[in-house]
Design a protein around this nucleic acid. Structure first.
Lengths: 150, 150
DNA sequence: TCTAAGTATGGACACTGTCCATAATCGGGG
DNA sequence: CCCCGATTATGGACAGTGTCCATACTTAGA
């Protein structure tokens, strides 16, 4: 299943460079990693890489569909290699933890809006906001729970 | 249903100030407005308001559930007063146009992830990414799609 | 090997959003 | 009606993320 990084780059028409390989591997090894984490990981693999090269590499990879960019509100962009399977994300409002979840309905019903207004929709991004078990436990004041109820 | 701005503020336990009224009206009049637009609109109504006051007022309104914050990737935060009806958004990747769309399935099936991992989910945000009719028309090169040169 | 195009680098910069201390305003009580 | 405490507004400075630019290097193909 897992094609090698150089292979993926090559088959996407991208030049194969040490930086891109490192970035791609970093994203693969650290799903949902931020640019900083990716840069850090890549750096530990090839010694040095500039911040801009990381941005550039990620942009190229996203453009080619090898990597998916997730940009939750109030958080820097994150990246993952799990593409093309229409899964969604679950984010904790408190600690920012991000988890993958499969599409609620199985495949892609929510991929099609009721009225598309003539748009050419290519992606449906679904983000579930809430609080993770840890944060729920840690703030055990069911009384003082500032009512986020809708 | 349409309570006046001062009324809404009052019933939410917020102090009624000219700034907040102006901000609330601005959001009501300009759905999906950015902070800048809100500030500008409010400013034209009451003469002057600081940027921070706008941020603060919006934060207070969001906190009280009078206003909903939308923060699409690659775009500054936007705000709308249409809350509590589980509608989603359709965004054009090219020009950033943002439209409301009703939930694809009618009510809230997509509000519940398949596996919630113990999370306490309070909101499901759905964003459809694509290209609006105008942008599709303008870049009539279905062959050379990646023509971002505008 | 040689060449052209693509890529990496580092610097500077723009933008959104936040923090802080102070001054003004609001709402309630006397 | 006036005063007081608490909330809110203001402006300044600042942090973080992401982008633009010119230059030097590397890649892929002839």
């Amino acid at each position: 299943m897992t094609s090698s990084a150089p292979d993926l780059l090559r088959s996407s028409g991208l030049h194969v460079t040490a930086q891109r390989i490192a970035v791609l591997r970093a994203v693969t090894d650290h799903p949902h990693a931020t640019v900083e984490v990716v840069a850090d990981t890549a750096r530990s693999e090839i010694g040095a890489i500039s911040r801009q090269s990381v941005y550039d590499a990620l942009a190229a990879l996203v453009d080619k569909g090898l990597v998916r960019r997730i940009q939750p509100a109030g958080s820097p962009a994150r990246f993952e290699t799990r593409v093309g399977d229409n899964h969604h994300h679950l984010i904790c409002r408190d600690c920012g933890t991000l988890l993958d979840v499969d599409c609620a309905v199985g495949y892609t019903p929510c991929l099609t809006p009721a009225q598309d207004a003539g748009f050419e929709v290519d992606e449906a991004e679904v983000v579930y906001w809430g609080r993770c078990p840890d944060c729920i436990t840690n703030s055990t004041t069911p009384d003082n729970q500032e009512d986020h109820s809708v």
